[in-house]
């Protein structure tokens, strides 16, 4: 039985725990043992320790990585930032032996160490590589029944690809999420701004109007080119923008349509038979027939 350390981060356990429920559910259904990472902290977010120094970044990430290493597992996260930050920290630790030495000096003060053996996976690459399209197909209980999906992989899930354990063939033309959705019976076409940034993150915190305007540009194009039943998101931060951020645009009368949004983990869990109330507990845009369409197909 495959095992994986579940790295929760911050936004998933505190803002969107329905993603945490969904990840736990799909791992169980797919026969992957969940190893809890007791004591794990923030990845840490780009605007915190990484903005203070490279050693600061590497040390704080190595705390988390050392927990997984001690338990002999890789880590899985549903958050793009957690994926990017920790993989980049790993990259720097490998590239700069002097940083690795200093990191271990600091970790040593509390009786920990990090040798650098842990890989950090996101939901997309984990499903695509560790589970595989064929196994996912076999395990599906509810076929997506032609549900049309707009796909958002998320910046941190794509770049910098050299720091990641696995990557798209062409990161500026991502297809893995589209293939996964199609394997579950959905339709996930390409669209012209598929790799554009959703505006969540530092931009949303420091220039909220510009962030929402950037998001609106992307959403308008998705509406015009695809008019999907659902947007499917590979990153929990992007999901906050596509769901709660979209609600703000509606409130401000900047858009006159609604496109429901789910994390890939939520959609996968539902297709595998998860309790819909729990898997979508915090969605702010109504799911408008998405569930009926999925469940009506079988």
């Amino acid at each position: 039985m495959e095992k994986i350390g579940l790295f929760l981060g911050c936004n998933i356990p505190f803002n969107r725990p329905d993603i945490e429920y969904s990840i736990r559910f799909f791992l169980n259904e797919l026969g992957v043992e969940i190893v809890e990472m007791e004591g794990a902290a923030c990845c840490p977010a780009y605007g915190t320790m990484p903005s203070l120094g490279l050693l600061e970044w590497a040390t704080a990430s190595a705390w988390n990585l050392s927990i997984a290493e001690e338990k002999g597992v890789d880590m899985l996260t549903g958050c793009g930032s957690c994926y990017g930050v920790q993989n980049e920290a790993n990259y720097y630790i490998h590239k700069h032996p002097e940083i690795k030495e200093k990191v271990n000096e600091i970790l040593g003060k509390v009786g920990r160490k990090y040798d650098g053996t842990v890989k950090v996976w996101n939901v997309i690459n984990f499903l695509y590589e560790k589970i595989g399209i064929d196994k996912l197909k076999q395990k599906i209980k509810y076929n997506l029944n032609g549900l049309k999906c707009g796909v958002q992989t998320g910046c941190h899930n794509l770049w910098p690809s050299k720091a990641f354990p696995s990557s798209e063939e062409n990161t500026f033309f991502p297809t893995r999420m589209r293939q996964l959705i199609e394997a579950m019976g959905g339709v996930a076409p390409h669209y012209s701004t598929i790799t554009d940034c959703c505006g969540m993150g530092a931009l949303r915190s420091n220039a909220p109007e510009k962030s929402l305007a950037l998001f609106k540009k992307k959403l308008d194009i998705i509406k015009e080119e695809l008019n999907p039943d659902l947007n499917v998101i590979g990153c929990s931060s992007c999901l906050l923008q596509f769901d709660a951020g979209q609600s703000l645009l509606i409130e401000q009368k900047k858009i006159d349509y609604k496109i429901p949004a789910l994390h890939l983990a939520q959609l996968t869990a539902i297709a595998l038979g998860a309790e819909v109330d729990k898997a979508t507990a915090l969605a702010s845009i109504p799911l408008n027939g998405v569930i009926t369409k999925i469940k009506g197909g079988n």
Binding site: L8, C10, P13, G39, C42, P44, G47, K278, A281
Partner: peptide, 30 residues
């Protein structure tokens, strides 16, 4: 927030949100 709680993003009301998703009030983190 990172120093005090181990989490840079630490929004209020998370216990209620976790309950809705059928999860324990606190995650097994720091």
């Amino acid at each position: 927030n990172l120093y005090r709680f181990g989490h840079a993003v630490f929004p209020k009301g998370f216990e209620e949100r976790r309950k809705k998703a059928g999860l324990p009030e606190k995650p097994p983190t720091a």
